[in-house]
Structures are given as structure tokens and as C-alpha cells.
């Protein structure tokens, strides 16, 4: 899935994975986030050696506003509503700054709680 923008010189396409990568990096910067949680599809692709960040879902509505859903793993001991709220804020800001796309909603899914040494 791509997001198209037309300029005088031509078309600009931003792939879904670009949005996902920016969101991933922004999410990882938030204190209390261990990482992005995968799903069956991503685990299977990782086994095959294919890296992708498709567990992050992006939808565009008729007005070209985006809704993004991020499944995350939170570090044990952190206040979850605070972490989730910070993730929403940071992701919205970085996506809007990098792509100029209006972000309507950032939905955060807390999938797991992990300790520091547990890797994702």
C-alpha cells in the first residue's frame, strides 16, 4: 500500500513500510517501551530471514488522514497509560514531520509486559 502525492514535477509515493519504520523508531525512543510486538506473519517472515514491520497497521480514510495501530511491549514497572500516551504523541509528531500526512489516530495495543533483559 502506497500513499500518493502529486507535485508539479511528478508523483511521490510513500510505501506503507516507510510509515511503519518511522513509527517503529519513534516508538523505541519512548522510555518504558521494550519494542514492537510481532504477529504470526512477522515471526514466520523472520524465520525466513525477511525483516519487515508489518505488525504496524496503517489505514487512510477518504480525506487522506491516517490511522495507525502499533502493538508494543512495555517494560515492567512503567505506568502503561503514561507510556501509551507518550507513544501516541511521539509517533504522531514524527510521522507528521517526516511525511506531511495528517495523523488522525494513533492506536496503541499493549501486547506484553517484559523485563529489561528480555529482547524483542
Amino acid at each position: 500500500m502506497n500513499r500518493y502525492t502529486k507535485t508539479e514535477l511528478g508523483e511521490i509515493k510513500i510505501h506503507h513500510n516507510v510509515f511503519a519504520s518511522i513509527a517503529t523508531e519513534a516508538t523505541k525512543q519512548v522510555m518504558g517501551v521494550v519494542g514492537i510486538s510481532g504477529n504470526i506473519k512477522t515471526y514466520f517472515l523472520e524465520l525466513l530471514g525477511i525483516k519487515n514491520s508489518n505488525s504496524i497497521k496503517i489505514k487512510f480514510d477518504k480525506n487522506n488522514d491516517a490511522t495507525i495501530t502499533i502493538p508494543i511491549v512495555v517494560k515492567y514497572g512503567y505506568n502503561i497509560p503514561e507510556v501509551a500516551s507518550k507513544v501516541q504523541e511521539v509517533v504522531k509528531l514524527s510521522l507528521e514531520n517526516s511525511t506531511n500526512v495528517a495523523i488522525k489516530e494513533v492506536n496503541v495495543k499493549i501486547q506484553e509486559i517484559a523485563k529489561d533483559h528480555e529482547q524483542y
Partner: peptide, 17 residues
């Protein structure tokens, strides 16, 4: 719900805690 969107916590995360 937050002003920026929805926050969902899986029961698995609660079990993890």
C-alpha cells in the same frame, strides 16, 4: 480512549505483569 487514539491492553499483558 485518549485524545490521540485508542489504547488497548491485551489480557495476556495483564497476565505477564
Amino acid at each position: 480512549n485518549n485524545p490521540s487514539g485508542q489504547v488497548t491492553i491485551t489480557l495476556f499483558a495483564v497476565e505477564d505483569l
